[in-house]
Amino acid sequence: MAGGAADEVVRQALTHADALYNFARWLARDPVEAEDLVQETYARALGAAQQFEPGSNLKAWLFRILRNAFIDRRRRSRREASPPYLEDLDADGEVAEPALGELQLDQIRALVAEDVAAAVHALPESFRTVILLDLEGMTEAEVANVLGCATGTVKSRLSRARALLRDRLAAYRP
């Protein structure tokens, strides 16, 4: 069983390099750190390959490792320097659901990639993460697996993250 787990990790893990790197770029915002994160993720995955449950979601498992590596790095940075490098990791405050009219939706439709990227970058890390994992095509249960939280938490966080993003995009002025 354990050998099978390690073998599945070895056989399949590298196929997720692009998705992991994309996630790392959005988390770290820096290409060099993103590469470091991906390399660290694979090193950790090899070390923990026996713990992987064969047949379970390898991609979610790798994303979880990467996010944990990212959080560990931010925590280390915070200890080493006084500025608060770590964004709020659980921005669970209320977000008012904006009622968007057709004009505001048109405004969102007209945005270019740079505007959308800026708005996503400006989200709190926990919101940015659920938006990105959702875009990866993960279900709420799979996102919960990555984050190590309940599916209900993901559902409500994703809803609030999208509401906040819609609100900001609708109000965006280049």
Binding site: L20, Y21, N22, V116, L135
Partner: peptide, 29 residues
């Protein structure tokens, strides 16, 4: 609308080939 805009406009980053080669070189058979 939000889904369409995110899927069509949010930049996606592909892993650099150099990174992939480094990963492959350190990966067990």
């Amino acid at each position: 609308v939000l889904s369409e805009v995110l899927e069509a406009r949010l930049p996606q980053y592909a892993a650099p080939l150099a990174l992939k080669r480094r990963l492959a070189a350190s990966w067990p058979p």
